[in-house]
Design a protein around this nucleic acid. Structure first.
Lengths: 245, 245
DNA sequence: GAGTGGTCTAGACCACCCT
DNA sequence: GGGTGGTCTAGACCACTCC
């Protein structure tokens, strides 16, 4: 039958199911046996099986679809460079993937999320652009960016259609500094909807602040990605140029 | 009574509890009402209350202790610089916190975690040092580092007691390159034990590869932190020095 | 209509903590 | 002993998908 290392039933079931997925016993894309049959096989109630399966959802290896079944998810993860100057349409193509962007909303908002605090955001209203970035048709980032309100509509459109780096370059703006705050977080409401992930699903966030040569032009934002869709890479120099001691 | 926006009971309860915590109605450090009384108040079964509370655990705002109650967690998050050259004992002190390190294990292992793949790890056995890093007495990082096997014991001890950057400097070794892969992930087994966090709790991971002037001396490793304990910050230059086009 | 997963409940039992 | 949260169960109902 099943592994019986622990004393808690749903944990034993969870571990055993995970083992079967990892070992390939349950194949990617295929449906697991129904909760009813698993219940019979493990000799525990159907509810306990469901509990175990639900607890596996945040690991990203399973996805349950009501009325259909529970499936082993395939996971393909994209790796992006942290540097915004390299994050562009051209860069995505270079990596061999087809990027696309879908505008979600254009509003005027203040930055209220306390996660921004270390970036010292302004207290006033800003243009808020929300968009979804796809790679090869699959959504990989949910981006919320805040721009100065002094932009004319044509430029705003551009920010909704392009990567921020590209939009700024098209406008002739140059970065002076890029400050990034990287953390993990349970999926936000929007992320849950965008990526159809369950409550509490781990996501990778990148909060940014882009300063430009134009003192009054400063861009803030946050990019959220499901942990299994995106990671980011950065290469640091041998010795820091600026001494912080 | 309670909010009734949705149609799913445990979600309504979850949202309402979250609202109360955020609004300060349930104070930090204080125990929530018992599941029994919440059950009565919301007019749902105790199981549904427990379900809602359990689903809130991965958000980090609650902690349930069997036999005691469910409490509102205080969260204080540390922010570290990504650059390893700045990650040191002295640096921690500068930030006004008291760092300490506790050695967990010293073994010989191969790097098997596929998460390391983008860093191109070697296939052979390495010295594996696992340690827990504390800040002001609270554990904030679980670090697993892999070192060349050619080290003498005295030096190995040093790696167990010090930050990697400090240990390398003490050995007179210089970095030539630091490659970092940052991602989020559900808590590993060790992280769950170390930080006493529940299954599926989001963590921030930093996988690293440190190359040194000594060609044969290369350090790999991964640092895992609960999402609510650590974030990392990095500042990038105006223009990339190296062209990658 | 038969099968699927998701929700909700009542009730029982346990281990734990405090007095 | 009386409180707490955690587990497990049987059984009922629902919405959904597929045939």
């Amino acid at each position: 039958m099943a592994a019986q290392t622990g004393t808690v039933l749903h944990e034993n079931v969870r571990e055993e199911i995970m083992r079967r997925v990892r070992s390939g016993e349950y194949e990617v894309g295929q449906a697991l046996p129904s909760t009813a049959s698993l219940s019979e096989e493990f000799g525990v109630s159907a509810i306990t099986i469901k509990r175990a399966l639900r607890d596996l959802q945040p690991t990203g290896i399973l996805r349950s679809v009501p009325g259909l079944g529970t499936f082993v998810r395939e996971h393909r993860r994209f790796i992006r460079d942290l540097d915004f100057s390299l994050t562009s349409h051209a860069d995505a193509l270079r990596l061999g993937l087809e990027p696309s962007i879908s505008l979600v909303s254009l509003t005027r908002e203040k930055i209220v999320d306390p996660a921004f605090d270390p970036l010292e955001p302004p207290g006033h209203l800003m243009l808020c652009v929300r968009k979804i970035i796809f790679a090869d048709r699959t959504p990989i980032m949910y981006d919320t960016s805040y721009l100065p309100r002094s932009l004319d509509d044509a430029v705003v459109e551009e920010f909704g259609e392009k990567f921020i780096g590209d939009a700024l370059r098209a406008r002739g703006t140059k970065f002076t500094r890029t400050k990034l705050l990287i953390d993990a977080a349970p999926a936000s409401e929007q992320a849950r909807e965008t990526f159809t992930i369950p409550n509490g699903y781990p996501t990778l966030r990148r909060l940014y602040r882009l300063d430009t040569t134009d003192k009054s032009f400063c861009v803030y934002g946050v990019t959220e990605s499901p942990f299994d869709r995106l990671a980011c890479m950065v290469e640091l120099d041998a010795e820091p140029k600026k001494s912080r001691r």
